[in-house]
């Protein structure tokens, strides 16, 4: 179950270099809070866009919720033979189409996108409807819900992201940046996906908006146990919230594990062009001066305060 990548390669065009190189990973369908890190151009966005088949891998195999989304074959024109039909388990040919050397299980695409909701970078630029409610309803309606059902889902989603009721009938363009982003996220939550993927959700928000959005995501996860995957550059967010960290470097997956492992090895961290969270940086310097002592490096402000007060960090 969940998302499975096996030796996935991706390039944007025939002559382009590989943006993803032999990426293999396994993400469980519940209870994960994953931060994807990497410097600009390392393949983070490409990776998440492959997860819901907005981009299709050049080679390799991606399985989402036990459904084979895509399989790369050598001779797509031979697909229509009896043997291949059995092999790929088609009942009728409409289920699949071939693009290049890829077989795409088209009947699975919509299903897949229902499992995995993707929130783009600056999603507020994609709002378009005349009212907030209509904008949030757009997704569920596309997935075949009636107006009534879609309205219900949309209202639920707006409550989850903390939009006040009086906003629902307003134009989304009259709202502040932080609120517009909430509307965009509500549009994805209304689809009730199992996994929510966000591409740099906190960029451009003021510090308060950032905190509010992060606690919103934490709450959604606590209440629904959905897996949340987010791309971020903000080490403070990683230090405070991540349960699992994936680091991309030049298209390769170079780290997949615990944040304490990642931040524990400063040399490797710098090799990935990453930095320590602000509090960890302060902690290292205070320790150098002999003012505090710790066994686990504090990764957030709260943890550093605990250490300064002479306490220990609970794993």
């Amino acid at each position: 179950m969940g998302i499975n990548f096996q030796r996935v390669n991706y390039k944007y065009s025939y002559n382009a270099p590989l943006t993803l190189k032999e990426v293999s990973l396994e993400i469980s369908e519940k209870n994960e809070f994953i931060c994807i890190l990497g410097h600009t151009g390392s393949g983070k966005s490409t990776l998440v866009q492959n997860m819901n088949a907005l981009l299709l891998p050049t080679s390799g195999q991606i399985t989402v919720f036990d459904k084979n989304v895509i399989k790369v074959v050598k001779h797509p024109y031979k697909l229509n033979t009896k043997k291949n039909r059995l092999k790929y388990n088609f009942i009728d040919n409409k289920k699949l189409f071939a693009r290049g050397n890829k077989v795409i299980y088209s009947s699975h695409l919509k299903d897949l996108r229902k499992h995995i909701g993707l929130v783009f970078q600056f999603p507020e630029y994609q709002l378009f409807e005349s009212t907030v409610l209509k904008d949030v309803m757009f997704g569920p309606k596309n997935f075949g819900l009636s107006d009534e059902e879609a309205r219900l889902e949309a209202k639920k989603a707006c409550t989850i992201v903390g939009l006040p009721k009086d906003v629902l009938e307003k134009s989304p363009f009259s709202l502040s940046g932080g609120q517009m982003r909430r509307v965009a996220i509500a549009g994805i939550i209304a689809l009730n996906p199992d996994v929510i993927v966000l591409d740099e959700p906190t960029v451009g928000l003021d510090p308060k908006g950032k905190d509010e959005l992060m606690s919103l995501l934490v709450n959604i996860q606590k209440e629904t146990s959905k897996t949340i995957i987010m791309i971020t550059h903000d080490m403070n967010v990683v230090g405070k919230y991540a349960k699992r960290v994936i680091v991309m470097d030049q298209g390769k997956l170079v780290f997949d594990g615990n944040k304490r492992d990642l931040f524990g090895n400063i040399e490797r961290l710098h090799k990935f062009n990453l930095d320590l969270p602000t509090s960890a940086n302060l902690a290292v310097k205070l320790k150098e001066k002999g003012l505090i002592n710790y066994t686990h490096l504090p990764l957030s402000k709260e943890e550093l305060e605990t250490v300064i007060l002479g306490g220990d960090i609970n794993e």
Partner: peptide, 15 residues
């Protein structure tokens, strides 16, 4: 104003 101070200043303040 919807902002926060630097973490270090905030730590001094909190403690």
């Amino acid at each position: 104003s919807g902002l926060k101070t630097m973490e270090s200043v905030s730590i001094i303040h909190n403690l």
